[in-house]
Simulated scan of single mutants.
Amino acid sequence: MKYLIAGATLALLAGCNGPSEEPLQSQPTAAAEDPQAQMAGLDQQIRSMIGMAYADNLEQCRLAEVGHRPCGGPQYYIAYSTTTVDEAVLQKLIAEHRQLQINYQQRHDVVGTCEVIPRPQLTMQGGRCIASPTAER
């Protein structure tokens, strides 16, 4: 009889530790925990948002500094059009991406080549904003 009661108690306790009732969506994903995956996702969002950067004239073109190099300055420059992009949303994504990179670089002691990437010149080609390399190198 002792063994029957002990077995029933164990079965009851095991049932109490059953599956969680929280939905799977509320658990963090691997990408949310991986800063490199987060940075890659934000970079893709930025590039997708900018798209082909169509504009009617050069005044609608802007240059964004994206990312952060370990020695300072942006990771890269990209041209975008004010006619096709919500600048406030774009700048928020760029700032979030930059901060993630800075935090990652500091946390992991990332070093770089410390070269300076020249700021490109904005031009238009085929109705699109383009970041053209400058002659300075």
Rank of each mutant, 00 (worst) to 15 (best):
G72W: 04
C71G: 03
P74E: 13
I102W: 01
T84R: 11
Y77I: 15
Y77N: 12
L93N: 05
D86Q: 12
C71E: 10
H97M: 07
E65C: 11
Q105R: 07
Q91K: 06
R98D: 13
T82E: 03
Q101S: 13
A95D: 15
T84C: 12
E87D: 10
E65F: 14
G72S: 09
L100V: 12
D86E: 14
E96T: 15
I102M: 00
T83V: 07
E96D: 15
T83C: 00
G73F: 01
E87Y: 09
E96M: 13
H68N: 14
G73S: 02
A88W: 02
R98N: 14
R69T: 07
P74A: 14
S81H: 05
A88K: 07
I94Y: 00
V89W: 04
Q99I: 11
Q99P: 12
S81D: 04
G73W: 00
Q75A: 08
Y80V: 00
E87H: 05
P70L: 03
G67M: 03
E96Q: 15
L63I: 11
S81P: 11
I94P: 00
Q91E: 10
E65A: 15
Q105W: 09
Y77M: 14
A64Q: 06
P70Q: 03
N103R: 08
P70W: 02
Q105S: 07
E87K: 12
D86R: 08
Y80C: 01
I102H: 04
G72D: 08
K92D: 13
A88P: 06
Q91M: 06
K92N: 14
V66Y: 01
E65K: 14
G72P: 07
G67S: 11
V66N: 03
P70E: 02
N103F: 08
D86H: 08
E96V: 13
I94E: 00
G73V: 06
I102C: 02
I94A: 03
H68Q: 14
A79Y: 02
Q99D: 15
D86I: 05
L90N: 02
Y76L: 06
G72Y: 03
E96R: 11
A88C: 09
S81I: 03
R98W: 04
E87G: 01
L63H: 09
Y77K: 10
H97F: 13
